[in-house]
Amino acid sequence: MTTTKNRRDTVASSRKRWNESGLALLFLGPTMAVFALFSYYPLYRLVYFSLYRPNRNSFIEGADEWIGFSNIWDNLASETFTAALWVSAKFTLMTVPLGLTAGICLAVAADRHLRGIKIFQTIFSSTVATSVAVASVVFTTLLQPENGLWRDVDWLSLNKSASAIRAISVVAVWQNAGLTFVIVLAALQAVPQEIKEAARLDGYGTVRNFFSVTVPMISPALMFLAVVLVVNALQAYAQFEILQPVKTAQPLLYKIADPDGASTISTRAVFSLGLFGVTILVSLLQFNLLEKRVHYGN
């Protein structure tokens, strides 16, 4: 056979080609309009706000004021930004490894043939359907400083920044474990039966089998999870707002969304670009670091 199966080199008069372009415009138009207005235009505006202070005073005519690149460097080096970045980083480091490990344990436990296993699988995946807001409300029963059940557990106190990050991490670990469970279980069940049997015939023990056969086979799923969970953690907001009566721990997004109106537009624009940069950096880093260790099977 010729290798042309996937080429769309059909007989077409120029009129038909023109029609296809028109149709493509029609089909892609809505998507592109939304992306232009709410993904790319805001990126432009973030850069603009970082460099210009908009004139919001309706009584004074005047152009937006150029504040220059120094606004970017000053804000990125500011105590506010570095502190928020530190909060987000700690939160990420606490929630991702723990959530992943917990989820993998759940998946391994539930990946077996027992009567009623479906019930356990549904319970383990239930946190996926729980929104961050609901999860936060649920955990106030435990974490609330006055009458939560863990109000006397000092290292999970919401009243101090360091312990508040830990407390909020508990919620995120609970949710991450559910997502990890769903995806790892699907990956485990996709490992071909023959490979498991071959490993058994080769005389691998259970533990050795898991680390030298199963983990490499599910590594693409773990890789995907690592990226998703880290990015989610860097972009966490709702848990911090709902759980903390006093916002002692303020992550990056808290400074960007700025519910208290503490910063100027230009400052928040720089922080947004900072989050953008950190997210890209982390994604690239993870791909480079992890890709070598990942087995992509077909």
Binding site: T2, T4, D9, T10, V11, A12, S13, K16
Partner: peptide, 28 residues
């Protein structure tokens, strides 16, 4: 490829393809 040219699923780069008496190079 020859068959797909008769069908009109591939265009003819060069030459003439007829079905009956009609030249079909540009017929969809």
């Amino acid at each position: 490829t020859a068959l797909r040219m008769i069908a009109g699923l591939e265009s003819v780069s060069d030459g003439t393809l007829r079905i009956g008496d009609q030249i079909v190079n540009d017929v969809p």
